[in-house]
Computed example of a mutant assay.
Amino acid sequence: MQKNAPIGVLDSGVGGLSVLKCLHAALPQEDFIYVGDTARTPYGPRSEAEVRRFVGEIIDYLAGRGVKLVVVACNTLTVLGVETLKGGHPFEIVGMSKGAELVLAASPSKKIGVFATEFTINSGAHKAAILAKDAGADVYPKACPKFVPLIEGEQFGSAAVREAVAEYAAPLKAAGIDTLILSCTHYPLIQQEIEAEFGSGVTVIDPADATAQDTQAALAAQELLRADGVGYLEVCFTADMKRGARIASRVLPAADCEFAEIKL
């Protein structure tokens, strides 16, 4: 592995752009290649076998681009077990932080909500991680299947988004949560709407910053951190590049990005 090699970042669509933003902020000297599988999103309702095949294709592509590490910027994929996604590739794979310590530190009452995809919620991984840190916590998971299609469809600030947020928030508000973790990387793209629905009494946590810290630590442990320079952002999609670029411009400095549509 070479220090000057790029870092790969992958997601089922545009959601991982929220993680790329945090990675770029934490590691501005590094080069990044992002792959969003917009041709086949959403992954949440798909079978595990199908999801694993898709991820394997993306990781093979990134390996061909000579990356030194891959960040799986998707909670649905992370719960599969990042080591099981590695195949025979030599680079390390970093998954999304489950954010257990973050939410417990932010929650006075230890009543914690989890917004995620159906796949992630059904895995029980985030609830288990929180309870492993504090068995006395009350965790309220809620699958939000309408969110990803709305976000991928650029329905930001729309009535449809507000209605979906209100629907999924209702049982968590009734339970009296004081902290909510966004356990899907798409969801920070509508964090404003989510925070507005819950109000100031609920702290909304995005675990992307913790994932960026995990990535920095993994590179440092392998002595693969670049010491200086200004990195580039290559943002690739498997379909609808112009739409992806528009969404990317909401969270990234678009002038610093090079966009491309690729085939896997």
Score class of each variant (00 low, 15 high):
Glu92Gly: 11
Glu154Arg: 04
Ile7His: 08
Ala217Asp: 12
Ala5Arg: 11
Arg162Val: 10
Ile7Ala: 07
Gln155Ile: 01
Gly15Asp: 06
Thr38Val: 11
Glu152Val: 00
Gly95Leu: 08
Val165Arg: 00
Cys22Leu: 14
Ser123Pro: 13
Leu77Gly: 15
Ala128Cys: 10
Val9Asn: 13
Val51Asn: 03
Val67Cys: 12
Thr78Met: 03
Ala106Trp: 00
Gly16Thr: 00
Cys144Leu: 02
Met1Tyr: 09
Asp138Arg: 11
Lys263Arg: 15
Val165Gln: 01
Gly176Phe: 02
Glu48Tyr: 07
Gly201Cys: 06
Gln155Ala: 10
Ala160Trp: 03
Phe91Lys: 03
Gln213Val: 10
Ala26Thr: 11
Ala169Glu: 01
Ile247Thr: 03
Pro207Lys: 06
Leu80Cys: 05
Ile177Gln: 01
Ala239Pro: 14
Glu101Cys: 06
Leu80Ala: 08
Leu182Asp: 00
Met96Asp: 10
Ala227Phe: 10
Val139Pro: 08
Leu264His: 15
Ala260Ile: 03
Ala208Cys: 04
Val103Met: 04
Thr185Ala: 09
Leu131Met: 11
Val94Phe: 13
Ala128Gln: 13
Glu101Phe: 03
Gly201Val: 09
Thr78Cys: 08
Ala210Glu: 13
Pro6Met: 07
Ala5His: 11
Glu92Tyr: 05
Gly95Tyr: 01
Ser123Trp: 02
Glu48Cys: 06
Gly81Asp: 10
Val9Pro: 04
Asn75Thr: 05
Leu224Cys: 10
Arg65Glu: 12
Leu172Tyr: 00
Thr120Glu: 06
Leu77Lys: 14
Ile205Trp: 04
His126Arg: 12
Ala25Thr: 14
Asn122Gly: 04
Pro141Trp: 00
Leu80Glu: 12
Ala137Gln: 08
Glu163Tyr: 05
Phe54Met: 09
Phe156Ser: 11
Val35Cys: 10
Val72Phe: 11
